[in-house]
Simulated scan of single mutants.
Amino acid sequence: MLIGTILRSKGSEVTTVSPAATVRELLARLAEHNIGAVVVSTDGVTIEGIVSERDVVRRLHDRGAEVLDAPVSAIMTTEVTTVGPDANVDSLRRTMTTQRFRHVPVVDGDRLVGIVSIGDVVKSAIEELETEKASLVDYLHR
């Protein structure tokens, strides 16, 4: 299965936040959209970073509550792993597991076109297994 297949099913909407937004504003955006990470982007098309709930928790632990008024750029990850819509989901699942991250922006060329979470990847694996199971059961009942 390809990443583009996941995007066709879940949609390509990506929640972004400006690097100048405060961490407090970031938290409001995460809560409002019930998500665990956002892409940091000035224009909604290019990727300047990514920031997750984990980033916030770690910085709160390190720096205390003053981090809430700091800009997102102060806590974001700037070296962002991305994937294209034609990438293989199995390969991405292995990468996400070994590198221990849960959200990967999808880019087509230099343009942000979606985001996939580990939940999306696991869901696609389960759907694939269910399809294979149904095919095998059908084959056995012939």
Rank of each mutant, 00 (worst) to 15 (best):
L2T: 11
I3M: 00
L7D: 01
R8G: 09
S9G: 06
K10Y: 04
K10T: 06
E13F: 04
E13V: 11
T16A: 00
T16Y: 00
V17C: 00
S18K: 15
A20L: 15
A21L: 11
E25T: 14
L26N: 01
E32A: 15
E32W: 04
E32K: 14
H33K: 14
N34W: 03
I35F: 10
A37T: 09
V40R: 10
V40S: 10
V40Y: 05
T42H: 07
T46N: 12
I47P: 01
E48N: 13
G49T: 02
I50C: 00
S52Q: 07
E53L: 13
R54W: 06
D55P: 13
V56E: 03
R59L: 09
R59T: 12
R59D: 14
H61Q: 12
R63F: 04
A65C: 03
A65Y: 05
E66H: 14
E66F: 07
L68K: 06
L68T: 04
L68G: 05
A70Q: 13
A70C: 08
V72K: 05
V72F: 04
S73V: 00
S73H: 03
A74C: 08
I75E: 00
I75G: 00
M76D: 01
E79Q: 15
T82H: 04
P85I: 09
N88I: 01
V89S: 06
D90E: 13
T95E: 15
M96F: 05
Q99W: 12
Q99I: 03
R100L: 07
R102C: 06
R102E: 06
R102N: 10
R102L: 10
V104I: 10
P105A: 01
V106G: 03
L112K: 04
V113Y: 06
G114H: 02
V116C: 08
V116R: 04
V116S: 07
S117A: 02
V121A: 01
V121R: 01
V122Y: 03
V122Q: 04
K123S: 14
K123P: 07
S124F: 05
T131Q: 12
K133W: 11
A134V: 00
S135G: 10
L136N: 03
V137D: 11
H141I: 08
H141G: 12
H141P: 01
R142Y: 01
